[in-house]
């Protein structure tokens, strides 16, 4: 089934029937190896929408400013962040039309640039073909290996969205997924504290504090971020490995139990800091402590917004748990 065609038809109908005022989707730009967000209002613009293995970006980030009711194209993983926004009353269910798309996985940001078989300039198109990702180039067609997909895709349990108003790409509707797989976290957990410190200080030495991680995060919706606050100034604007790490530690605590491991922060990071490892670690802890699986049930209370008498004491983490 041609998802893009299916998507365009649905989007056109939704806009022309007035079911939504705007739709957030993906469109092609000048380069066949990038997609851009498309925020459309006119039914005619629906023709520009596509869904391909380059549909990496989590479009839920654009939802707050869009004209409502808004239709948003979501993959199963993106849906989790939308559910979180519903839980936190950042958007009403009636204001959002969930256009869910079944997804076989999307490519890592640099997968095409670093493939030795072809050059970026030769790429003509990137398509999904029966669950496989194919790159069509001027020198032939190439199937992309599994490790060219984003980490989250390789352990994905939400190929089909479990909550939607429209389902693009057919197939069976998804089931409410279990917690994400937190890929890579175990390896970091195995490191000694000294190794961890060295690893992260090294990674954060690349940080230029561009705030792309925060700006791209669909759950970073605070009007005034603690990192920008000038009085008191919790975090300086300086680039400094410790300051950079500190800034992220604040974000980690703030997003623990809310972060749905969509990987948008890592995807947006221009200098390749593996931020998902940090955020996944917090998500994993919350899941193990409270059994909470974020972004699944719109009616559920996020772990950090509830208190139950039977909640485990933090002794369990202080007592030998390898944080």
């Amino acid at each position: 089934m041609d998802k893009s065609k299916n998507l365009r038809e649905t989007a056109k109908t939704l806009l022309s029937e007035g079911a939504v005022k705007s739709i957030i989707g993906y469109k092609k730009g000048r380069f066949p190896f990038y997609l851009q967000p498309a925020i459309i209002k006119d039914p005619e613009e629906a023709a520009s929408l596509v869904f391909t293995p380059l549909s990496r970006q989590n479009l839920v980030s654009f939802i707050k400013k869009a004209a409502k009711p808004v239709g948003v194209v979501v993959k199963g993983c993106d849906l989790r962040s939308l559910v979180d926004l519903l839980q936190e009353h950042q958007i009403g269910r009636g204001d959002v039309r969930i256009i869910g798309v079944t997804c076989a996985g999307v490519l890592k940001g640099d997968a095409l640039e670093h493939d030795p078989r072809f050059k970026p300039a030769e790429i003509k198109d990137v398509v999904e073909d029966d669950g496989r990702i194919k790159v069509i180039t001027s020198s032939g067609e190439f199937e992309m290996p599994e490790d060219s997909m984003m980490e989250k895709c390789r352990s994905c349990s939400v190929h089909a969205p479990y909550l939607y108003d429209d389902l693009i790409g057919g197939g069976e509707p998804g089931k409410a997924p279990g917690p994400p797989a937190y890929p890579g976290v175990e390896e970091i957990e195995k490191m000694t504290p000294g190794e961890k410190r060295a690893f992260w200080l090294d990674m954060f030495s690349r940080c230029i504090r561009c705030n792309a991680c925060r700006q791209a995060c669909p759950l970073c919706f605070c009007e005034e971020c603690v990192m920008d606050e000038a009085k008191p100034r919790w975090v300086t604007a300086e680039v400094d490995p410790v300051e950079n790490l500190f800034a992220h530690l604040i974000r980690i605590y703030h997003s623990a139990g809310r972060c749905v491991s969509c990987g948008e922060c890592e995807r947006a990071c221009p200098v390749g800091i593996p931020l998902s490892l940090l955020y996944n670690k917090a998500a994993k802890e919350v899941n193990e402590l409270f059994g909470y699986n974020p972004g699944v049930d719109p009616e559920a209370q996020p772990a950090m917004l509830t208190y139950r008498l039977e909640d485990p004491e933090c002794k369990s983490c202080l007592g030998g748990r390898n944080l």
């Binding site: 967000p37 230029i208 705030n211 791209a216 947006a268």
Partner: peptide
């Protein structure tokens, strides 16, 4: 400007 996330990249 609609598709911009307002980061500093």
């Amino acid at each position: 400007g609609e598709g911009c996330v307002s980061c500093g990249v």
